[in-house]
Design a protein around this nucleic acid. Structure first.
Length: 725
RNA sequence: GGGCGAUUAGCUCAGUCGGCUAGAGCGCCACGUUCACACCGUGGAGGUCGUGGGUUCGAGCCCCGCAUCGCCCACCA
């Protein structure tokens, strides 16, 4: 079975790797690790043994949430609530002093046989006189005390509840705090146990119990309700309700609570000091987006027990201990035998502990292996240690740990993120990483969470086939960190158009003759354009520093479309040589400098398109080039000043007015302008003169007439179109 | 019940330090085949920024309340 699991895992790994490669993730595949490989098992077991040696891991026999189908204990972090139909049943318990009945409300009358006490709030005057007295359970006749506990809610049901071992986590808490006996009646298969619990001794009681012994829970409940009705203990009829019930997140039936021996790692659920240390770790961590830190605090503050790491499954990293067996063949759980670290990883079901012989397995005076495996998070919580080769290459580990960033979904803050913090806190007295980024979910177009059961999932490979990897990446990159995003083919089409535009724009710019060696941008408008690209590079860099990739993309995209639609349209006549070689040279140099920066700014988002266009005119991959920055564009120092932006504004304003006139005249943009009459102030005129020849060409203006206006006046252009032929 | 987030154009979303005459893309309308690109271009219509108060010379933004939606946590009598 384990071999088949391994095989399937490798097949799945291949599928994922193909997917990630197709997506263009810049992963160093030589550093691949899997959580079930030898090295990971070694790290997992070593960390566990360290936890054990320091007292951070311990084993305990205790009531545990149990999935009767998966046949395993589950941890608090794996729970989810589901709304389920149920019914309140009012049931009478007879007072032993003959003073009448005490009526409780319960949704699970099947558990009356497991009842060990009734409980009400200490301030509840209705029940105060009864505290310390006893009642008999209906059907079974077991005498149980009436006790007081502040967690009992006077306004819930009749205000007095029955405590069963165990119906819910509150029962466990009451049982522990009130020192109550145990009367378990549900076994690990979800059936009523065959023999009645201790204390259920009367002949009538045993007869009543025999009716449900061995039955599944739901039929047993039906039987109990019938019996209650016959004996008159059921008051009125059950009142249907819908209430939340705890499920294992992968399970199909409600969780039960059974007593079993399990391994735990301390996580602050039972220790206020540890809890505040772990809360402090959450405060030290840089969260992106920041508000996600509240989910961490919320979770840590709400923990009600330590982290249950053992699972009763066949496939997983084994708990690496054995237990000595006494002469009666009983294990001593308090003195586990641990392996030498050098021998890790081990499997206690086949490996023999130091000092023992194989024949001594499961024999009195010999040993037994721990039968459990560790939960997947117990290994995944060590991913920085595994990736950093902790214990195998400590020099490497010291250089990469703590790591810079953990990216993950916000739904696994309570599992992956938190458990990783716990392990690093214990092992290294440190955070595992400096930053964490939380991505949102992809929702279907109707904003519902995608899930296999709803059948609304899409597979990435189909998207890559239909839209191209860069287009899919574009859509994904538009989703801001931590924000859920609806699946959108429209957005992928936009990404595809952008990639196409980058191909075309690159082809166009590179199709011009090479500027002469040493040529650079000299014209004011060219320098102004480069100033804007430099500003864009700075904005994108700042955004990336804050992990806001969506903003970096948005700024770059916006600058790129402006570059294509406004700047290139404005200067392309000059670039073709209409104003002489020197004027052309400035435009050609500027366009190439801008194109280089823009291609690199887009590289993280559209790795395939940018790699293609980069190699048209460069050696080597774009993905190992330096990031465009202010230093690189320092050759154009001073071009980011306000007059630069003003110049760009004036030029697009004047050209825009000419274009609008042509649009309003419902004529082609290439229609000549016989006379353009520009009214503007002196400052605007000055700027206009520096771009006049470009605007003249771009707007096909035959003649200008400049009319001076007072300072501060908006520029106005009257356009007289030449007759079309 | 506790916490967090969202609410801006028909849709999806930006809006950074309180200066906004509120933007983008898609969609829609009109025009245009222009020598990189019709997977294109030019222009246009479309918003009392969820709501009620407050602070301020000035509020989409800050403060208080409310509503709606979503998520996290608690909630099985």
């Amino acid at each position: 079975f384990i071999e088949l699991c391994d095989e399937l895992t490798h097949q799945d790994e291949k599928v994922f790797e193909d997917l990630f490669r197709r997506l263009g993730l810049s992963v160093d595949w030589s550093l691949l690790y899997t959580t079930i490989e030898t090295r990971s098992r070694r790290v997992s077991q070593r960390a566990f043994l360290h936890n054990l040696a320091r007292g951070e891991a311990y084993t305990q026999e205790a009531p545990t949430l149990w999935d009767v189908d998966f046949q395993t204990a589950v941890a608090q972090a794996e729970l989810e609530d589901r709304e389920r139909p149920g019914a309140y049943h009012q049931v009478a318990f007879a007072r032993t002093d003959g003073g009448g009945d005490v009526v409780i409300d319960t949704t699970r009358p099947v558990l009356i046989a497991a009842c060990v006490a009734l409980v009400a709030h200490p301030d509840d005057e209705r029940y105060q006189p009864l505290f310390g007295s006893t009642v008999r359970t209906p059907l079974y006749g077991v005498e149980v005390p009436i006790l007081a506990h502040p967690l009992a809610q006077p306004d819930k049901g009749t205000g007095i509840a029955m405590i069963c071992t165990f119906g819910d986590l509150t029962d466990v808490l009451w049982w522990r705090e009130l020192n109550l006996p145990t009367r378990p009646i549900i076994d690990r298969n979800g059936r009523i146990v065959a023999t009645p619990p201790t204390g259920l001794d009367s002949t009538e009681g045993r007869a009543a119990y025999a009716l449900i012994a061995g039955a599944k829970i739901n039929p047993a409940q039906t039987t109990v309700v019938e019996s209650l009705r016959e004996t008159g203990a059921l008051i009125g009829e059950p009142r249907p309700i819908v209430h939340p019930v705890k499920f294992y997140e992968k399970g199909d039936r409600p969780l039960e609570i059974v007593t079993s021996r399990q391994w735990y790692i301390r996580n602050g659920g039972r220790d206020a000091d540890l809890r505040s240390s772990l809360l402090a770790r959450g405060q030290q961590l840089a969260w992106h987006p920041d508000h996600m830190r509240h989910r961490y605090s919320n979770w840590v503050e709400g923990l009600n027990g330590d982290w249950l790491i053992s699972r009763q499954r066949f496939f997983g990293v084994p708990v690496p201990v054995w237990y000595p067996l006494n002469d009666a063949g009983e294990p001593d759980y308090e003195s586990p035998i641990v392996p030498n670290e050098a021998s890790l990883p081990i499997d206690p079901s086949t490996d023999v502990p130091p000092g023992y012989a194989p024949e001594q397995r499961d024999r009195p005076g010999g040993f037994m292996g721990d039968p459990d495996v560790m939960d997947t998070w117990a290994t995944s919580s060590l991913s920085p240690q595994i990736a950093g080769r902790w214990g195998d290459d400590d020099e490497l580990f010291s250089r990469v740990f703590p790591m810079d960033v953990r990216p993950q979904g916000h739904d696994i803050i309570r599992t992956w993120l938190f458990s990783t913090v716990v392990r690093a806190h214990f092992e290294h007295d440190s955070l595992p990483w400096t930053n964490t980024t939380l991505s949102g979910w992809i929702l279907d177009p109707d904003r519902k969470k995608m899930s296999k059961s709803k059948g609304n999932v899409v597979t990435p490979m189909d998207l890559f086939d239909n839209f191209g990897s860069d287009a899919v990446r574009y859509w994904a990159a538009c989703a801001r960190p931590g924000v859920d995003t609806a699946f959108s083919e429209e957005q992928m089409k936009v990404g595809r158009k952008l990639a196409m535009k980058l191909l075309n724009a690159s082809k166009f710019v590179l199709g011009f003759p090479m500027p002469a060696a040493g040529a650079t941008a000299t014209h004011a408008i060219d320098l102004a354009m480069l100033g804007r690209i430099a500003a864009t590079a700075r904005e994108a860099t700042d955004a990336f520093e804050e992990f806001d990739y969506a903003r970096a993309l948005e700024r770059t995209e916006s600058a790129f479309w402006w570059f294509c639609d406004d700047y290139v349209e404005l200067v392309k006549g000059r670039a073709y040589g209409s104003q002489g070689d020197e004027a052309a040279s400035s435009a050609l140099a500027a366009m190439r400098i801008a194109l280089s920066a823009l291609q690199r700014l887009f590289a993280p988002f559209m790795p395939f398109t940018t790699e293609a266009v980069w190699r048209w005119w460069n050696e080597g991959s774009i993905h190992v080039q330096s990031w465009p920055n202010a230093d690189e564009l320092a050759a154009f120092a001073g071009t980011e000043s306000a007059p630069t932006e003003a110049l760009l504004a004036v030029s697009s304003d004047i050209l825009g007015q000419i274009r609008r006139a042509k649009t309003e005249a419902k004529t082609s943009q290439k229609t000549s302008v016989a006379l353009a009459r520009l009214r503007c102030d002196a400052q605007t005129r000055g700027m206009f003169e520096s771009v006049r020849s470009d605007i003249t060409e771009a707007g096909s203006v035959q003649e200008w007439e400049i009319i001076d206006e007072s300072a501060g006046s908006a520029a106005l252009v009257d356009v007289e179109l030449a007759p079309t032929t």
